[in-house]
C-alpha cells in the first residue's frame, strides 16, 4: 500500500513539474535555446503569488489570472530586448543571455524579498482526504487538476489553432516556416512568453508546497533540465512522461529503500536511458531541418 501511495504522490507532484518543464522544452523546441532562467522564473511566479496572497489576500490559484499574463509579457519582452538583437552565435549567446537574466532576477528577488525562506500558507494547504487507506492532499490534487487543464490548453493551442500550427512548423523547419509567411520572431517571442507563463503556474504550486527563496532556483533548474533531457529536448509529451516518471521513481525508491537514494536512482536511470537513447524518450533532434 505504501508503494501505491508513493506512486499516487509521484503522479500528482509530477503533474506540476510537467508544467514547469513543459515551458522549458517548448522554448527549446522553437528557439533551440536552453532557458537557464526557467528556474528563477518559477521562483518569481512563487513570489508573485506569495505577495498577492500576503498583501491582497488573493488566493494563489486565483492569482494566476494576474501572474500568468504578467509573466507571459516578461517572456515576450525578454525575447525582443535580449534574444532578438543577437546577430551572431545566437544559440550560445542566448544561453549566456538567459543565464544573465536568471542572475539579475535572482538578485532583484533577494533584494525585494530578502533571503529568508517563505511559503504560501493558505488555510487549505494542510487539508487532505482519503480513499480507503490512500491519502490525497488537497493541494496536490488541486495542483494536478490545474496542471491537467493548463497542459490540455497548451495541447489545444499547439494542435488546434493557427498559432499552434505555425509554432510546430517553426520547430521543425524555421526557414521553410518563414517562406510560407510565418513571422518566426513573433512565434519565438510568444513561445518564450508561454514558457515563462507556465513557470508562473508551476511556481505558484511550488510556493504552496515548499518553503523557498531565490536560491531555490538552482535545485529547480537542475531537476527541470534532467526532466527535459530524459523526455527529449523539444518534446512536450516527453516532458510530461519524464516528470511523472521522475517523481514516481523518487517516491517509490524513498519508500522501499531510502529517501536518500530517491533522486540518485532517477539520475542513474536517466544516464542508462541516455546511453541507449541519446535523444531522450521522445526527442526529435534527428528530424529537425536546419
Amino acid at each position: 500500500m505504501l508503494v501505491l501511495q508513493a506512486i499516487i504522490d509521484g503522479i500528482l507532484v509530477g503533474g506540476f513539474y510537467a508544467l514547469m518543464a513543459g515551458g522549458l522544452t517548448l522554448v527549446f523546441g522553437v528557439m533551440e535555446i536552453v532557458n537557464f532562467a526557467q528556474g528563477i522564473m518559477v521562483v518569481l511566479g512563487a513570489y508573485l503569488s506569495y505577495a498577492l496572497f500576503s498583501h491582497l489576500s488573493i488566493d494563489p490559484f486565483l492569482s494566476l489570472v494576474i501572474t500568468m499574463p504578467g509573466m507571459f509579457l516578461i517572456g515576450v519582452a525578454v525575447y525582443w530586448s535580449m534574444i532578438k538583437p543577437i546577430k551572431q552565435d545566437r544559440v550560445i549567446m542566448s544561453l549566456l543571455v538567459m543565464f544573465a537574466v536568471g542572475t539579475i532576477a535572482e538578485g532583484i528577488l533577494d533584494l525585494v524579498f530578502t533571503s529568508n525562506l517563505v511559503q504560501i500558507s493558505t488555510p487549505y494547504v494542510n487539508n487532505s482526504f482519503t480513499i480507503g487507506s490512500l491519502i490525497f492532499p488537497d493541494i496536490y490534487v488541486y495542483a494536478f487538476l490545474m496542471s491537467v487543464v493548463l497542459l490540455a490548453g497548451v495541447y489545444y493551442l499547439l494542435y488546434r489553432t493557427r498559432f499552434g500550427r505555425s509554432l510546430r512548423a517553426s520547430m521543425q523547419n524555421p526557414t521553410a516556416a518563414r517562406l510560407v509567411g510565418i513571422n518566426t520572431d513573433w512565434v519565438s517571442a510568444y513561445t518564450l512568453g508561454i514558457g515563462v507563463a507556465m513557470a508562473a503556474a508551476g511556481g505558484m504550486v511550488f510556493g504552496l508546497t515548499n518553503s523557498f527563496d531565490a536560491a531555490s532556483s538552482y535545485d529547480l533548474i537542475s531537476r527541470l533540465l534532467a526532466i527535459v533531457i530524459f523526455g527529449g529536448f523539444g518534446s512536450l509529451s516527453g516532458a510530461l512522461i519524464a516528470s511523472v516518471l521522475m517523481l514516481v521513481i523518487q517516491d517509490v525508491v524513498a519508500v522501499v529503500w531510502s529517501p536518500t537514494w530517491g533522486q540518485t536512482t532517477f539520475y542513474v536511470i536517466l544516464i542508462l536511458i541516455l546511453l541507449v537513447r541519446p535523444q531522450g524518450l521522445l526527442g526529435r533532434k534527428a528530424v529537425r531541418a536546419q
Binding site: 493557427r162 500550427r165 505555425s166 510546430r168 512548423a169 521543425q172 523547419n173 521553410a176 516556416a177 517562406l179 510560407v180 509567411g181 510565418i182 526529435r284 528530424v287 531541418a289 536546419q290
Partner: peptide, 19 residues
C-alpha cells in the same frame, strides 16, 4: 527539406495558404 516532416501532407499544404 522544404516540408515540415512531422506535420501531415494536408497540414503542410494548408500552411502554404498561411496568409
Amino acid at each position: 527539406r522544404n516540408l515540415f516532416p512531422e506535420l501531415t501532407v494536408r497540414e503542410n499544404v494548408e500552411l502554404g495558404g498561411f496568409l
